[in-house]
């Protein structure tokens, strides 16, 4: 059984970040590699590439930054001290640790249940400008390749994805990600309420989901 189904069976509506990422990985959607634990000795530091990021990881905390639950750019020397600080702040919760990622450009991909059209996929440029400019576009799920291509062209920031100032980005990987998210949504349409993949880092080669939220009906 997929993670989503078992969470749904529990009667739980929100998934923790590690659960969302596992569900995405099951569906072939690339996410950051992560480790999760409540205690420092549960983390295998040898497997980490520093600097790392640490996040409180709980189905009950959807907005991690708002509660001071995210610490960025932690070096090997600071690791143990910072981990313990965060776990003392959230003693009941897991801490998720993952390597900091290189980014060229951040995008946001989401799913929402529209009351008229049902499950709908959103795409836009990520980061702090998303909400200010509302530079996003939608398609009703399922989408075809043509739709994904149009979504990339439709946002105002489209030139950034087309190699503005010679920044090379993997457009093909974004298109494939949109198709994969649409297929994911279609598969779980009955129980999925909304989802954010935010941010997704787009690189010269490939894309990677860095943070993700998911709510079930």
């Amino acid at each position: 059984m997929s993670i989503i189904d078992s969470v749904h069976k529990e009667g739980r509506k929100a998934l923790a970040e590690n659960e969302v990422k596992e569900a995405l990985r099951e569906a072939g959607i690339p996410t950051t590699d992560f480790q999760v634990g409540k205690r420092f000795d549960q983390i295998d530091a040898k497997k980490l590439k520093f600097p790392v990021v640490m996040k409180v990881c709980s189905p009950d905390i959807l907005h991690k930054t708002d509660v001071g639950g995210v610490v960025l750019d932690i070096t090997k020397d600071q690791f143990e001290q910072e981990f313990n600080k965060l776990s003392q702040k959230f003693p009941k919760e897991n801490i998720l640790v993952e390597s900091m990622q290189d980014r060229k450009v951040e995008v946001i991909i989401g799913l929402i249940n529209d009351r008229t059209f049902g499950l709908t996929i959103m795409f836009g440029l990520g980061g702090i400008y998303t909400e200010v400019y509302k530079d996003v576009t939608f398609r009703v799920v399922p989408i075809r390749r043509q739709d994904a291509e149009e979504m990339l062209k439709e946002i105002k920031a489209a030139p950034i994805l087309e190699g503005f100032r010679k920044i090379k980005l993997d457009r093909e990987a974004i298109i494939n990600l949109l198709l994969a998210v649409s297929a994911f949504g279609e598969k779980h349409m009955e129980i999925l309420d909304q989802m954010d993949l935010n941010p997704v880092f787009v690189k010269t080669k490939g894309v990677i989901v860095v943070d993700a939220k998911m709510l079930l009906k």
Binding site: G110, T137, V140
Partner: peptide, 26 residues
Amino acid sequence: AGSAAASTHTGSLSGSDAVYDSAFRQ
């Protein structure tokens, strides 16, 4: 104001008109 429950960014950005607009284009 037709925004769905706004627990996610996607929710807060998806005023129903934006979705209509995109669905028409689709």
